[in-house]
Design a protein around this nucleic acid. Structure first.
Lengths: 190, 190
DNA sequence: CGCGACGTTGATTTGCCTCAACGATTGTGG
DNA sequence: CCACAATCGTTGAGGCAAATCAACGTCGCG
């Protein structure tokens, strides 16, 4: 197993050798091909997923049958349907790889076990979730404040990586509008 | 100090008497009048606030000068600008009481201190933030999926308490549309 | 090579906003 | 305790951002 998760945790909390080996015992490494699913609608989300390498999307199917992307995940991001994971209830989301991925999976049960053996991990996740929630607060602000065009300009400036790595129609979906409208914006001024 | 915070923490993690008294030493209770501010734009957010009694709103001022509400907080909710709080940077938000409130404040510094003395508190906040983030995931889904009218119907059904406690124009703002349009929806069918 | 996925373009439609005006209700100072 | 202002909710006319629909060019891949 690559050490990208351990390295990531160490950025936030200290770990000794014994704790590192406990963590490695509690998680599971997965190699996932392009366009495979870690979660489908109706399933109970099995784990919290850490991206070692690759790129994923989370989406749901809207009432007109279209795939609505709500988030992407790149290297060193955690992704899951936390509602489904915590309450062990069926999910309304899909999680799918966009590229071939190397993923580390931490199940609900293994998290509990790990937290009791290694309190620093609990602190790590407190920080991770606090940051995730903070980012969600900002994102909700943008969803209220920005026009669709402003959303695109903002995204383009802040996440140029994504624009080169992800197809246009997925970016349009994530930003909450149609591929046609994205074309129109891009035509105006690039 | 009322025990509503202690009671709330005990719902998620066990606490002994000593831990309870440490917690009480680390927090500060505030009585806040109606329409007063816990945070204004440009300030660094001083604390994480727990609502013992009363009701608050968080908002920002949009580019046309209007107050855009992004969340409400009722009894037993935590509210703060977590980005400002964590990075000690100026906030883009206001937090204001809607009713007279009894609030418990936990500063960034006091949180650190408390976490080192009482690990259970770190676990409590891990759970709180995970739930908050989970709720934000759901909320973002609704923002993509629902029309403005569906947003209102959904809100009305799931949070009838708010509809009776909070003025219409604030509900319209929170749901992301104008008071005029809310009138139109209500006229259709109630 | 040929097919399907992706991106673009233009015509038309629509959900919701803006603006302006007018009742109703609440609060406040004289 | 009343007069008057300010705040809040409603109604209607007109306008705009973005969606929908349909058609067409293009590229990558089996």
């Amino acid at each position: 197993m690559s050490d990208s998760l351990i390295t990531h945790i160490k950025k936030y909390v200290p770990l000794n050798e014994q704790e590192i080996s406990i963590i490695k015992e509690c998680v599971q490494e997965l190699a996932v091909k392009k366009k495979e699913y870690l979660l489908k609608e109706g399933q109970i989300c099995k784990a919290n997923y850490f991206v070692e390498k690759g790129c994923l999307r989370m989406f749901f199917v809207g009432n007109k049958g279209e795939e609505q992307i709500t988030q992407f995940a790149l290297e060193n991001w955690w992704i899951s349907d936390y509602n489904s994971l915590m309450s062990q209830s069926p999910s309304g989301f899909y999680i799918q790889t966009i590229e071939p991925c190397s993923i580390i999976a931490l199940t609900h049960q293994q998290h509990e076990k790990l937290a009791s053996y290694v309190p620093a991990v609990e602190q790590y996740f407190r920080i991770i979730y606090q940051r995730a929630y903070s980012a969600a607060q900002q994102r909700i602000k943008y969803l209220y404040d920005f026009s669709r065009e402003e959303m695109y300009r903002h995204f383009q400036q802040h996440y140029p990586t994504f624009v080169n790595r992800i197809p246009q129609y997925m970016i349009a979906s994530f930003l909450g509008f149609t591929p046609e409208y994205l074309s129109e914006i891009r035509k105006k001024k690039q």
